[in-house]
Amino acid sequence: MREKDTIWIKNKCRELGFDYCGIARAEKLDDDARRLETWLSEGMQGNMQYMENYFDLRTDPARLVPGAKSVITVLMNYFPSQTQSAEVPKIAKYAYGQDYHEVIREKLKQLLMMMKQEIGEVNGRGFVDSAPVLERAWATKSGLGWIGKNGNLLNKQAGSFFFIATLIVDLELVYDDPFAKDYCGSCRRCIAACPTDAILENKVVDGSKCISYFTIELKDALLPEHLKSQFSDWMFGCDVCQDVCPWNRFSKPNSEKQFTPLPQVLNFSSNDWEELTEESFKQIFKNSPLKRRKFEGIKRNLRFIKN
């Protein structure tokens, strides 16, 4: 029965548009808890106080779903078919289309609903990046890839341009073998290319130095002047460490219509962004990840990279 249910779940994941699915036994992440504790103690979360919250929930799935037995991890490709024009304010590729939180959350809801209809009473919760779940750790445990030196999950067939989401359930399933190898080898391209030297040794990323942190997470009215020359026109997020990764030569355009790039993201010039009104911003980007930084935050970032 467990094998039948496992095969059915993986088939449904493919039908819903997920590119990969792996399943791991729900258990405490003791090693990851220690690494997270060290990372936090060294202040690498910067002003992201939410990273310090719900520590026990992050490392113990049973605290999120009572009676948790399995963690289903899915990957969804977001590599775009088109990229931005040259000489425009740069936006991370994950933010080209609709907000992935909403897109994937709806798919996880559908998956859980179908599981209840097909298998019976199943209790579970889906998590998409915005909840206290260590997605990359579960992806590794379920055989989907390894953690690269830039802190991203790397998949041998697809690189790293994909979203990771998890569904924790109280259903026992057949578990995949953990991914045990590291295929980064002696490559240090991501470390060398990082504009702000945020990528450290031993697969540690200092979040407080990352361009994504400054342009998305940091709510201060002003960005650090001494870093101005290092931002390289990144207005929202940063893809440098992924763009230089050799494994991303295997990236292929995604097939999810909701991730189709907005024309404005691809083509807005600096002048277009400068002339954009708050009303137009809210209308154009109402379903976009850019709404997280809000109109004033986008304007702040634009002034910083252009002045």
Rank of each mutant, 00 (worst) to 15 (best):
Glu3Asp: 06
Asp5Val: 01
Asp5Gly: 00
Asp5Ala: 06
Trp8Gly: 03
Trp8Asp: 04
Ile9Gly: 06
Lys10Trp: 02
Asn11Trp: 04
Lys12Ile: 06
Glu15Met: 06
Leu16Met: 11
Gly17Cys: 06
Gly17Ala: 10
Phe18His: 05
Asp19Pro: 00
Asp19Gly: 06
Tyr20His: 14
Ile23Cys: 02
Ala24Met: 01
Arg25Met: 09
Glu27Ile: 08
Leu29Arg: 03
Asp30Ile: 02
Asp32Cys: 01
Asp32Ala: 09
Ala33Tyr: 02
Arg34Asn: 03
Thr38Asn: 11
Trp39Asp: 02
Gln45Lys: 12
Gly46Ile: 09
Gly46Ala: 11
Asn47Tyr: 05
Asn47Phe: 03
Gln49Arg: 13
Gln49Ile: 11
Tyr50Phe: 13
Tyr50Arg: 12
Phe55Ser: 10
Asp56Phe: 07
Leu57Val: 03
Ala62Cys: 12
Leu64Phe: 09
Val65Asn: 06
Thr73Ala: 14
Leu75Pro: 08
Leu75Thr: 15
Tyr78Leu: 11
Pro80Gly: 14
Pro80Thr: 12
Ser81Gly: 15
Gln82Met: 15
Gln84Trp: 13
Ser85Ala: 15
Ala86Lys: 15
Pro89His: 11
Lys90Gly: 10
Ala95Val: 11
Gly97Arg: 10
Gly97Asn: 14
Gly97Leu: 12
Gly97Gln: 11
Gln98Ile: 10
Gln98Met: 13
Tyr100Leu: 12
Glu102Leu: 12
Val103His: 07
Ile104Met: 15
Glu106Trp: 09
Val122Met: 05
Asn123Ile: 02
Gly124Asp: 00
Asp129Val: 00
Asp129Glu: 06
Ala131Pro: 00
Pro132Cys: 03
Glu135Gln: 04
Trp138Phe: 08
Lys141Leu: 11
Lys141Pro: 00
Ser142Lys: 01
Gly145Met: 00
Ile147Gln: 07
Asn150Thr: 00
Leu153Arg: 00
Leu154Lys: 01
Gln157Val: 06
Ala158Val: 08
Ala158Arg: 12
Ile168Thr: 08
Leu173Asp: 05
Leu173Asn: 04
Val174His: 10
Asp182Gly: 04
Tyr183Asn: 13
Ser186Lys: 12
Arg188Ile: 13
Cys190Ser: 08
Ile191Phe: 11
Cys194Pro: 05
Pro195Trp: 13
Thr196Gly: 09
Ala198Arg: 06
Leu200Lys: 15
Glu201Asn: 14
Lys203Tyr: 09
Val205Gln: 02
Val205Met: 04
Asp206Leu: 02
Gly207Pro: 06
Gly207Lys: 07
Gly207Ala: 04
Gly207Trp: 10
Ser212Phe: 03
Ala221Lys: 11
Leu223Trp: 03
Leu223Pro: 01
Pro224Leu: 04
Glu225Val: 12
His226Asn: 12
Leu227Arg: 05
Gln230Phe: 07
Gln230Leu: 08
Phe231Asp: 02
Asp233Tyr: 08
Met235Ser: 01
Met235Trp: 01
Met235Asn: 01
Gly237Tyr: 03
Trp247Tyr: 13
Asn248Met: 08
Lys252Val: 15
Asn254His: 14
Ser255Ala: 13
Ser255Cys: 10
Thr260Glu: 15
Pro261Asp: 08
Asp272Gln: 13
Glu278Ser: 13
Glu279Lys: 15
Glu279Ser: 14
Gln283Thr: 13
Phe285Pro: 03
Glu296Leu: 09
Arg300Thr: 06
Asn301Gly: 05
Asn301Leu: 03
Asn307Met: 12
